[in-house]
Simulated scan of single mutants.
Amino acid sequence: MLMDISELPRVALDRMNRVHEEEIKILNKLYQSIVEGADIEEIDRNFREFLEDVVNHFTSEQKMMEEFNFFAFPMHKGEHDIVLGQLENLKKNWEKEKNPELIKAFVENEFLPWLMNHIQTMDAVTAHFLSHFIRD
């Protein structure tokens, strides 16, 4: 396991917390398939599921921010765009090399530290703002 869900920072909007929890579950499944030496097809399926989840995660947040005219939308979206670019590069490298260590290193050293920081900063502010408009 890469991370226990209980270690995730919480924000003021439950729907965002649920999305983060689901993302960690998917990320843990991908990570486990790599460290346990699963076949390339299984790792590929898990990687594609992770990529799709990240895109859906970012898209849903961005829709809420746009709908309620969140003041820091461009900055928040900019962080998402940077990570999406990194994931696109990782996907291209994965398709060429099929080297699970590339994915493992990225999620350990880049994605997870970024996600934790992003939740504690950008998402915390965003969720606080949106909690004035959204009840869930």
Score class of each variant (00 low, 15 high):
85 G>N: 10
109 N>I: 04
57 H>A: 02
112 L>R: 08
86 Q>K: 13
74 P>V: 07
117 N>C: 06
79 E>T: 04
74 P>D: 10
28 N>T: 09
76 H>R: 03
8 L>D: 06
112 L>Q: 03
78 G>F: 03
61 E>K: 09
118 H>Q: 07
46 N>I: 01
104 K>T: 06
53 D>T: 06
115 L>W: 04
136 D>Y: 06
98 K>T: 12
129 F>D: 08
32 Q>L: 11
13 L>F: 13
125 V>G: 02
9 P>D: 06
114 W>M: 04
104 K>S: 07
108 E>C: 02
89 N>Q: 15
107 V>M: 06
108 E>H: 01
5 I>H: 11
36 E>F: 01
86 Q>P: 00
9 P>H: 05
54 V>C: 10
16 M>S: 13
4 D>A: 13
120 Q>R: 15
98 K>C: 10
126 T>A: 13
83 V>Y: 02
85 G>M: 04
99 N>A: 11
99 N>C: 09
58 F>W: 01
51 L>M: 09
74 P>Y: 11
4 D>L: 08
94 W>F: 07
95 E>H: 05
128 H>Q: 15
82 I>D: 07
96 K>V: 13
21 E>I: 12
53 D>A: 14
107 V>D: 05
125 V>E: 11
97 E>T: 12
62 Q>M: 09
109 N>F: 04
109 N>P: 04
74 P>S: 11
129 F>S: 06
63 K>G: 01
29 K>L: 08
16 M>F: 15
122 M>Q: 14
55 V>I: 14
47 F>D: 01
13 L>A: 12
127 A>P: 04
47 F>L: 14
128 H>T: 09
82 I>Q: 13
136 D>L: 05
7 E>Y: 13
74 P>L: 06
25 K>H: 08
57 H>S: 06
133 F>H: 15
132 H>I: 02
2 L>Y: 06
53 D>E: 15
90 L>P: 02
2 L>E: 04
111 F>H: 05
28 N>S: 04
97 E>M: 11
58 F>D: 02
37 G>E: 12
63 K>L: 13
62 Q>L: 08
19 V>Q: 14
109 N>Q: 14
29 K>I: 06
17 N>F: 10
103 I>A: 01
91 K>W: 07
8 L>Y: 00
29 K>E: 15
115 L>Y: 07
66 E>Y: 06
60 S>E: 14
89 N>F: 11
71 F>H: 12
115 L>T: 08
43 I>L: 03
72 A>H: 13
65 M>F: 10
59 T>A: 14
